[in-house]
Design a protein around this nucleic acid. Structure first.
Lengths: 160, 160
DNA sequence: CCTCGATCATTCGCCTACGAACGGTTTCGT
DNA sequence: ACGAAACCGTTCGTAGGCGAATGATCGAGG
């Protein structure tokens, strides 16, 4: 955080010559955004490998988990809870419905809402998947010691 | 790993009663994959806000950075360096070319390759963007202390 | 020299992600 | 009671992400 965030200054450049070693060089691969993208790719890949038999994506899994915990919940609401915007949630709900894991019903009290509920098949699938969840986590965190993994999870949770 | 993967077993449940506090409950929002997805969403959002004036996405930025460092590089190769698969890279290169930031040329020695090179405009844009890079990183890591941020970056880099 | 396997770019299909706009519904304030 | 604001689901467009297949080209071995 040397943070020269102001910066609209008309200076041609901060003259990076004197002492311009490797240290002041901007490297994309060291930036948190880049690292998050790569780590997320890897985590998704591991999820896909472990959960292959279910043909359920990580986002679909998160939605099913929430429905399993909460029971019938409106589409937008469950989306908010798992960080899926309404536009994306529409497609997710459509695919889960098409696969028979979820059933949409109208809310009696509020005509705007579409309540999503797990089908019997949906319950069966999500319970089987939850049993394998720890394996995904373990393999994703495998490069770290348990203490490091714990630290990482704690820190990353605070970025939200 | 304890893996009761069979599961067609008629057992009602692995009896999670005794000592079944909050501890043995599987919560998606505590899993590393879920946290990575959410953190990546947030980082992308911050990038988009800081770099708004350039209308360049994080992935496009990474590609431009690499081209800036390496000079003309084949499409597949630069994609591999920044973690973008060939299918995705095709679209990224097409959009960067359409915007005039990159120019594709044929390699004289190998007819299969499409070399990507920054245009003058591309150089101008990537240099301006690099100047703002630290601001993106700082804002993304803002919830953490400098020591914590450093720790997080180090740990997440080891997941790759 | 010539075939086989690797590599490259491209294409297709499916999925997530999100800004923006829209019409229908509910709620709130006046 | 009524109009405005807030909210819901839907749709469109653009962009990454990736498995799978294809055709062109290259390189190594026989």
């Amino acid at each position: 955080m040397n943070a020269p965030h102001a910066s609209a200054a008309p200076l041609p450049a901060p003259e990076p010559e004197i002492g311009a070693g490797i240290l002041d060089r901007y490297r994309v691969e060291d930036q948190i955004g880049y690292l998050l993208r790569r780590a997320h790719q890897r985590a998704s890949s591991i999820f896909e490998a472990v959960m292959r038999e279910f043909s359920v994506t990580p986002v679909q899994f998160a939605v099913l988990c929430k429905l399993h915990d909460l029971g019938p919940t409106s589409q937008n609401h469950v989306g908010r809870l798992v960080g899926v915007d309404p536009a994306t949630m529409f497609g997710v709900a459509r695919r889960l419905t098409a696969r028979g894991l979820v059933r949409p019903t109208a809310d009696e009290a509020d005509a705007r809402l579409v309540l999503l509920a797990l089908t019997d098949e949906g319950v069966r699938v999500i319970e089987a998947m939850k049993g394998r969840g720890p394996e995904v986590t373990a393999r994703t965190l495998a490069p770290l010691s348990p203490a490091e993994a714990d630290m990482l999870v704690r820190l990353i949770a605070r970025l939200g």
